[in-house]
Amino acid sequence: MSIFPFVVVAWVCAVGLYGIITSRHLVHQIVCLIVVQSSTYILLLGVGYKTGAVAPYFYDIPLNTPAVDPVVQALALTDVVVEAAVTALLLAFAVQAHKRFGTLDPEELRQFQG
């Protein structure tokens, strides 16, 4: 079962991608993109995990206690911030698209150029 978390990563990523290509609503599509990005959190935390290790916080535990990799956890934090920024921008674009064209269906939006 040692590859199970990485199979979960592939599953979450695939589910999100399927949602993006079949979506009929821009906001739904943005949520699907968040799902795709969530798979990277599982991947990052999965590669840094050590069986039986604790979180890398040595406030009340001895320094030599086995702890999981803090670098990938810091990367996951970066990931979350970038996702929040991307989501905010995409939602703003969706608002403008609805204002200009009166629809959020990607199929209908394709008829409008520019």
């Binding site: 995990y49 069986t51 290790a53 030599n64 999981v68 803090p70 670098v71």
Partner: peptide, 23 residues
Amino acid sequence: LIGLPGFGNYPGPYGDIINAIAV
């Protein structure tokens, strides 16, 4: 995935080094 260390077998060394020297 076949060639990678399995879940829970973190190979290091970066995380272990940082954990040892950061505090």
